[in-house]
Design a protein around this nucleic acid. Sequence first.
DNA 1: AGTCACAGATCAACCACACGGTAGGTTTTG
DNA 2: CAAAACCTACCGTGTGGTTGATCTGTGACT
Lengths: 202, 202
Amino acid sequence: MTDQATEGPRMTKGERTRQRIIDAAFELFSRSGYRAVSLRDIAAHAGLTHAGVLHHFPSKEATLIDVLTRRDQVDAHLVLDPGPSAAELIDNLVDIVERNTRTPGLVSLYAKLSAESTDPDHPANYYFTRRYRLLRDHLTSAFSVLLEDGSPVSPGTAAVQLLALQDGLQVQWLLDPEAVDMRSATLDYLRLLGVVEETDDT
Amino acid sequence: MTDQATEGPRMTKGERTRQRIIDAAFELFSRSGYRAVSLRDIAAHAGLTHAGVLHHFPSKEATLIDVLTRRDQVDAHLVLDPGPSAAELIDNLVDIVERNTRTPGLVSLYAKLSAESTDPDHPANYYFTRRYRLLRDHLTSAFSVLLEDGSPVSPGTAAVQLLALQDGLQVQWLLDPEAVDMRSATLDYLRLLGVVEETDDT
DNA sequence: AGTCACAGATCAACCACACGGTAGGTTTTG
DNA sequence: CAAAACCTACCGTGTGGTTGATCTGTGACT
């Protein structure tokens, strides 16, 4: 489940515990969102007391932002890196969709937190506002290369639509996995834009 | 803000209070989701004690389902009614998008709750699973009328995509209202499907 | 390599507060 | 005047965070 660098013999005890806490927080936030998970839950899952958790992180909130930024670093290069070509970027996005289908926890994390963070007072509000802006900008410039001149949608609109489609698909898929095929819905949309081939590669 | 039948002189006192409670619950759930709102919050907002609220509703959960079903009855006829033609249904959907832009509270309610309810134990899980199934089915049959035979997307896929697009747009819009135009993103998508005219009617 | 001291890790106990729900009495209303 | 509405007070539980004491891992020194 957690393929990040969880196991590290060359870490001090504290660093290892810290990592265990982050893994636990990730899993629990994924399952239930931020507000519904307590420090004691996280602590128990990581094998210590909630006071112990607060020794490594100043607050519950600090735990959240650590989980978010750490997870972002995993994906960031797929979307934002120096220069995959515009076409590669689209390929990477489709890959991410496929991987998401295999990791409902991750999907649930972002679905729950992005909705929760809509509240301006939410600790992750800034994170998500910024995240979407960044993604929209990158996708917009990618689409401005990929879309034909006579395309019925502008690059900016296509960027908004693609991101929205992803998020919306995730909610429907989480509620009813049998009924929704995120991959094909995404590919069909990209086909609609004329950005991928008509051929169907299973 | 609440244009439902809030003011009713021809109601018994209890019925009026009950209505005030529902209005308060609606507003607060909209602002912060279900779990983050307490019975005492709702009570204070409706002008009584939390014990008073529990006199009218057996539990907090009962409050939620009442809010949801009541709000649904307002929109239901626009989408599910006996027989608006398929084209009318699309028109109605666009109208709903426009009205949503004017009522962030409502949008926030559904965005937060649909994500929250992804958890199988959530009191609204059944409600949302059922809701999406219903909407998908209706939209699918509408699209099977509207879409040309050679359309690159199947009616079912278009239904999933349209609903997903709506939900995703709402999250982005709530986080950053300036940056997202829900109406035009929706219209552009429908145009992509060839389901509305090319002309732009502001 | 062995040891030793100290910084870092961990915990039990506690705090003030908030939660959903209940019990039983008092007021209000139809 | 009965029934419905409503309130005060309470219960048990859970929360994020603090305190101070106790272990223990680790790096430096011999």
